[in-house]
Computed example of a mutant assay.
Amino acid sequence: MASIALHICAPSEVDGARIADIHLAAMDSNPLLHVQFPTPDSLARLRDYLEAYIIKELHDPTKGILVARLEDTREIISFVKWDHPTHGADAGNEKLETGDIKEIEGCDPLYLERYAATAATAKERYFGNNKCYSLSFVCTHPKYQGLDAGSMLTQEVIKRAAGENMPVYLESTKAAVKMYEKLGFTKLGEFSLAIPGQGKDMDMCEVYEETCMVRTPYLS
């Protein structure tokens, strides 16, 4: 599969539906998603919200988004989103979880708010208000894992950031840390959030963890 040719490019509004589908497919194994949106109906509403939100982002100069397409079929298989360099409290590049996504019927706003607040506190602790390219999502459809699409997209953001002598900051799931380390990111610290257990253990609690990482422009 690794020999399949991919094309990195900017999406258009008509790609919003596909990107939303990839987002949910890629995040399906993430327990936090199912705590925030615990029912099939709430996930369906989230999918529609994401499609509209993506189209909005395409016209927002503070946001960036690229997709990876299969060269032969032009099918989108992966995407990356980031916030452009801004500085301080007035930057305006808030997390997805802090907006009107909390108004989606059937979602649990408590865990949207807790995640956003915990991640913001960790970023402030480990990175401060330094200007940076801030990666928000790197998602690949599970069907196309193994093609290095996420790495290619991340490298393109690194290249753009380096052109402005800017670091790239992100919060990584545990599963993706090694991929980012291979791309030159280093660990800054970690944060965690207690969430309800899944499946038969819903009455139990589990710990959801992410790692704060940075890739500085002087690294090769």
Rank of each mutant, 00 (worst) to 15 (best):
E94P: 13
A117C: 01
R47N: 05
H23V: 00
I101C: 10
F191W: 10
A91F: 15
P11E: 05
E94K: 14
R74L: 08
L50E: 07
R114E: 02
A162R: 13
Q145I: 04
Q198C: 13
T121L: 09
C212N: 07
A119Q: 07
D100L: 07
R18E: 00
H23M: 11
T154S: 05
Q36Y: 02
K131N: 04
L58I: 05
G64R: 08
L135D: 08
I22L: 06
S136L: 01
V177H: 03
L112M: 10
L153R: 00
T154P: 04
T211G: 09
Q198V: 08
E103M: 14
A119R: 15
M202R: 13
I76H: 03
P109H: 08
G64K: 03
K81C: 01
V80F: 07
G106L: 15
E94T: 11
M27K: 02
A26F: 03
L219D: 11
K159I: 04
S12R: 10
A149P: 01
E75G: 11
E210H: 15
F127K: 14
K178A: 04
R114V: 00
S78A: 02
Y49S: 05
M204E: 04
L170H: 01
G184A: 01
K102N: 14
E103R: 12
S136H: 04
Y115G: 14
V35E: 04
I77H: 08
Y218I: 11
I54R: 10
H84P: 14
S78K: 03
P31V: 04
C212A: 01
G16H: 03
A116R: 13
V14K: 13
A120I: 07
I101A: 05
K182Q: 01
E51Q: 12
T98L: 04
C139P: 03
S192V: 14
P38E: 02
M179C: 06
A89Q: 10
G189P: 07
E103H: 09
E94M: 10
N129G: 01
T186Y: 15
L110W: 14
H34W: 07
R47M: 01
A68W: 03
H59Y: 01
A20G: 07
F191I: 06
F127V: 03
K102L: 07
L96V: 12
V157S: 07
F137A: 13
P61C: 08
I195K: 09
C212K: 11
D201S: 15
D108C: 15
H84Q: 14
R125Q: 09
G128M: 13
D201R: 14
I55W: 00
Q145S: 05
I104A: 11
I8R: 09
N93V: 13
I8D: 05
P38M: 09
W82C: 02
D201T: 08
M204I: 00
L66N: 13
A91R: 10
D48S: 06
P40C: 09
L188W: 07
L43C: 03
V157P: 05
V14H: 04
Y208N: 04
L33D: 09
I54C: 11
L112E: 09
D41Y: 02
A149L: 06
E210K: 15
R125V: 00
H59W: 06
K123R: 03
S78F: 03
I4H: 03
Y180A: 11
T86I: 15
V14S: 12
P142K: 09
T121W: 13
E75L: 12
P217G: 03
